[in-house]
Computed example of a mutant assay.
Amino acid sequence: MTAPTLPRMIAAYFAADRQGPEAVARCFTEHATVKDEKRTFVGRGAIQSWKAAAQARFTYTTTPTGLAHDDGMIVVTGRVEGNFPGSPVDLRYRFQLEGDLIASLEITA
């Protein structure tokens, strides 16, 4: 399967996820939001803490497998594999961009 060609900032987000929480937080606007596991995180500091907690609990990799556009959002399907219950799982990442940064991200199954 051929990986989709992602917009630059979304590709940067998935690359940053392999580098660490600080790199991930830099992909977002100052007041961005992330919704994941029925919780909402607002601002770079909260996003960095969210990512740090996830990486402390589990080791995982995400491989983007699909790309679509839906109501102004960029939707990436990704296969997530790791040492967490239910692995592997396909997740949907709904991105809203603002300039060269991510303004919002919602992750759902």
Rank of each mutant, 00 (worst) to 15 (best):
E37A: 09
A12L: 08
M9Y: 01
D90P: 03
T5H: 07
R39G: 06
F84A: 07
S104M: 11
Q48E: 13
D17G: 15
A109H: 12
Q55H: 02
M1T: 04
A109T: 10
T77Q: 13
A32P: 01
S104W: 12
E30L: 00
S87W: 03
V24N: 00
V34M: 01
Y60W: 15
Q48I: 01
G20W: 05
T40A: 11
M9T: 12
L105E: 09
R57K: 15
R94G: 07
A12Y: 06
A12H: 09
W50E: 00
G78V: 04
C27N: 06
F58H: 14
H69R: 11
G82W: 15
E98L: 15
Y93L: 03
Q19Y: 03
S49H: 14
A16D: 09
R92S: 10
D71R: 15
T2I: 03
A56N: 06
A3N: 06
Y93T: 02
F84K: 09
C27H: 05
A12Q: 11
C27Q: 14
P21V: 09
R26D: 15
Q55D: 08
D17M: 13
F28M: 11
R8K: 15
Q96Y: 01
F84Y: 15
R79P: 01
V76N: 05
I102Y: 05
T40R: 13
G78D: 06
T2F: 06
A54R: 09
D90K: 03
I47N: 02
I107N: 06
I47T: 00
Q55K: 09
G82M: 13
D70K: 14
R94A: 15
